[in-house]
Design a protein around this nucleic acid. Sequence first.
DNA 1: GAGAATACCGTAACTGTACCGGCACGCCAA
DNA 2: TTGGCGTGCCGGTACAGTTACGGTATTCTC
Lengths: 349, 349
Amino acid sequence: MSSVRKIASSLGVSVATVSRALNNHPDVSAETRQRVLEAAQTAGYLPQVGKRQLTTIGLAYPTSPVRPDYGTFESMLLAGIVRGANERRFDVTIINLEQDRDPLESYTQFFHRKGVRGVVLRSLEATPRLAIDIAEERFPCILVADRCDDPRVNFVDSDSRGASRQAVDHLIQLGHTRIGLAIHNVLDSDHQDREAGYEEALREAGIPRDPQMTVRAPASPEGGAMMLNRLLEHENPPTAIYFTNPLSTVGALHRCLQLGIRVPKDLSIVGFDDGDVRLRTFPNFTAVCQDAHALGMEAARWLTRSLASDQPAIFRELRQTRFAVHESTGLRPVTAVRLVGPYEVKREI
Amino acid sequence: MSSVRKIASSLGVSVATVSRALNNHPDVSAETRQRVLEAAQTAGYLPQVGKRQLTTIGLAYPTSPVRPDYGTFESMLLAGIVRGANERRFDVTIINLEQDRDPLESYTQFFHRKGVRGVVLRSLEATPRLAIDIAEERFPCILVADRCDDPRVNFVDSDSRGASRQAVDHLIQLGHTRIGLAIHNVLDSDHQDREAGYEEALREAGIPRDPQMTVRAPASPEGGAMMLNRLLEHENPPTAIYFTNPLSTVGALHRCLQLGIRVPKDLSIVGFDDGDVRLRTFPNFTAVCQDAHALGMEAARWLTRSLASDQPAIFRELRQTRFAVHESTGLRPVTAVRLVGPYEVKREI
DNA sequence: GAGAATACCGTAACTGTACCGGCACGCCAA
DNA sequence: TTGGCGTGCCGGTACAGTTACGGTATTCTC
């Protein structure tokens, strides 16, 4: 519809000036650039190279991409996105939202300058705000591995409430009544789910929730070890713990081995897994499992289908996580383990 | 230099036909397409949209990208590549070489159709052949995490011979004389390095190499456990083992815990690490460490610098891996552990 | 105060792609 | 046989956006 020439004539400037303004070239005054950007925004300008239809989608990260913290999660997610996009012969480019973006330009302009027709937004921590901003500009976007209340925001997320409840139920069935919750210190929607599932299972079983049985720490092996320490130092320690993150689960299991705590004989542990971390620990841990690959694939599939068919529907999917029993959960021990010193373990009646 | 119009006039066809032939459109005869592709090849045709200089590089995978097998290695590599490319404001797109490539078109045409000016080639297993093909077309390309004898091929790889030798030396210093080698069953250059380092250290110390102390299996936790079994079933078992892959190291440590073999008291283990796997096992294992992030960053840095400066130099870098001592290596035990049944361990004099 | 340097912008030339129409050929029915 | 119709293939042209070059006005320097 709109082109650089249309915008140029409507503003009384030349096409070269419009092009320069849209591409952050230095040879244009700030005032003119502002006028051009506004005109482009209101006209709903979409650049097109030649007349080619672009077949690239972006994977946008608010910060530096692929944080090692997340273990294999990012890998699996990316693999899923690439596979989903390839089904319709789309390519995927990685976009860093903090890099190379002019604060003046809109997201739409930024993404078009990058040559992508839509983005999968990988939201880290507290930034679904971004998704709303992009949705407001009506640029095709889908949030992955997070969710958002705004009705204009598309997302694919996993819902771990059901499986979390199932996990805690499983512990209760094994006779446990004092069950700890070791959760991320930043409560995003995922972790809210897990806490809700934990709470539901307790309530259903008529077990009152003890706030001292909930501890919080960053998602890391060190955080996991720390949370284990804190729970077992309690005068009335738990006999089972639900760790809501893969890395803290690994850290906790490691700490148990260090302390000589036998899992599951002395202590039952349910963890969380994104990939196959649970199959690489000792013992293999019972876990709530999230399929990151499927998450990414679904997101890319919907986005590319939506771009190809050109009908802007709303898409919001919550995929249920799965509960898988392995070797780290067992019957409630008759004697609970308690930590009395940094390296001293006491088995009580 | 050359454009669709130049090619069109030199062949006596229209620009539309050239464009169609270059983009795999159906409305062109096979014979004409062939002629156009050949002319484009000899003329060294490089498409350019508008007059824009493309600032995208590709990360090309011969097969499906990001294999979960490799743990966090792919994640770290990708993160490094993206960061290296961003330094010069380049973007990265993921390209699957098996997808959407017409067998008739050259790699150059394929990559240009994808809109990238250069590629980082992630070679998996036995495919440095690809790097040679691409180098022959003079398309900017760098092989990462592998190497190639052909003098036209650029690469960034890590050299683990020195650190492997250091690792085995370390074991010898601790009094070990019977040292096993558990290595990948496919001997790419990386694993050749590791074997060479092992051999060198033994020779230097005057210890004859026993072929029965070398076992081979796929790089997986199961492979690691299997290799451990095979070595410890030997009538004269080793007191220390070098596992040349992160996943097999994890599998072996897991198997030791299962069998009740105390590491390092009964058996010393040196492993290999790409990221921080060694810090998430029990015990944390002594390892030869490869910095995948740095590998990717160096590759992308060189490629983007080379594209920006437009001088096609040759680049071949071997980064030394690092040897890090952790908790899985100790003094040679007086009694070696031997496996006499699937779950029976015997400690001999 | 005159010359030089710089900031900003317009004209025009250039890139590649898609739409539309035309030509040649083959097939089918009257 | 002949006219009509569909299809494969291709050319002309309009149009997308970008950049080289040059011009004008303003500012800086001596």
